[in-house]
Structure formats: structure tokens, C-alpha cells
Simulated assay, not measured.
Amino acid sequence: MSLLERIAEADERGLAASALACLERCLPPVADGGGESEPLRPLWASCEDGREWAARLTAARAAMTDTDGTGVDETASPVREMLLAAPSDWAAEPLREWARTCSLLSLEFHRRFDMPVLGEAGGDAGEDPAGRLRRWSSGDTRCAGPLVAGELRRQTEILETLAEAADPAGGASGLRGALDRSTEGRRVLRAVMSRRARGRA
């Protein structure tokens, strides 16, 4: 089953959690290296049943506007835009559209730091970038580099984990598993970003 098919079948919890996981991986590291900024983490607490979703979303938006050096810097503007676009209503269809958009944002973010792939300069050079991202999400991964391929797999695994733990008894463990996968993905991406930065120095 492709990533887009997984998103099409997900419930509210899966959609919200997968979208948040995508956005967290797009957050830049804290500039001073003094720890992790976690402006989105309070929203995870609402993913189980939507309780306090609107209030926590408002708080996350406020946290993401802090650009005075103590919060998230200006490179996180795409994440802020996605938070502003997030639905305040805990309902499947608006959450589904938001999850699709967050998924594409994360894929594009990973593509920017990926290794060059032959097809990018060859067979699909004339392909619309947005179309390429949608093609990858649909299961056609031609010309997808290792970072993008890993991100596609990670997003799919997160949705699978949440779907398998859909009952109330397994809900909390499902969210923990999704968060663990997302955190590991963020470590991988930041390690690549760090190596790229050192190579330019």
C-alpha cells in the first residue's frame, strides 16, 4: 500500500500524528546547540482523541512565532505556515488534507539534502517538482534518493503503527511508537545536514 493510500485510510489520530511527525523533522536544530526546541510536542498529547486540540494548536502557533533567539528561528517558516494551515476542528477530512500537505513538505525537505540521483538530471528533468513528490507518495519511487526513500518508508511505518494500535488499549503505545520513529528520522536527517555543513566549511 502506498503512502497516499495509507493517508486516505487513516483516522483522525493517525492523520494528526503523522502530520506532526513530518513537521517535527522539518524543524531546524537549535542554533546554539544548547538542546532541543520542541514547540510541537504539546500537540502530541491531543492526538489520542482530539482533546484540547484547538487550544494546543493555538499555543504551538504562538511558540513558533518566537524569533528572538530563544525559540525557533526563521528557517522554520514552512513549519509555521503549515501550523497556520492546520484545521482547528478535529475532523477526518480537513486533517487528511493537512496530513497530505505536511507529508509533501517533509519529502521536499529531505530531497534538498539528498544525494544527487541520476534521474534528477536525466529522464525526469522536465517533471514538475510537485508532481514528482506526488508520484513518490503514490509508490513510484524512481529517482528518489536514499533520504527520500527513507522518509517515504518512515511515514508509511508511522501510519501503519498507528493503524495497528487503533483500539483504546493500544492507543498510547501506538503514539509512542510513532514518536520514536519520528525522532530517529530527525536524528538521521540532522546528521546529514551536519555533514553537509562541515563539507562546505
Rank of each mutant, 00 (worst) to 15 (best):
A99K: 00
V79F: 02
A19M: 05
R6A: 03
R13P: 10
R25Y: 00
A21N: 06
V72I: 14
M64Y: 01
G145N: 05
S173G: 06
G177T: 10
S194F: 07
R13E: 12
V72N: 00
P146M: 04
L152A: 05
E157W: 07
G199E: 13
P168H: 01
E157V: 10
A76V: 12
S46L: 00
L147Y: 03
G122I: 02
A169N: 03
R176W: 05
V30S: 09
R112G: 03
R200L: 12
L118N: 04
G170F: 00
R100C: 11
E127C: 08
L4R: 10
L84Q: 13
A121R: 11
P42R: 01
E74H: 12
P28H: 07
D49G: 09
E120H: 11
E9P: 02
T101W: 03
P94N: 01
R187A: 00
A125D: 06
L105Q: 14
E157P: 02
F109H: 13
A92F: 00
P42I: 05
S137L: 03
A86S: 12
L107Q: 01
E97G: 15
T65M: 09
T75C: 09
S138G: 11
R154D: 07
D73G: 15
A31G: 11
A201V: 13
E164F: 06
E93I: 05
D11M: 04
G71A: 09
L83R: 03
A16T: 06
A178F: 03
L4M: 08
G14W: 01
L189H: 01
A55G: 07
E127G: 02
L179F: 13
Q155G: 12
S18G: 14
G14V: 04
P146D: 08
A63D: 10
M115Q: 14
T101D: 12
P168C: 05
G119D: 06
R6F: 00
D124T: 07
E93M: 10
L27M: 10
A60C: 14
T75G: 14
C143A: 14
L57C: 07
R181Q: 15
G199W: 02
R6Y: 00
P42S: 09
D180V: 13
A62E: 15
C22L: 07
E160Y: 01
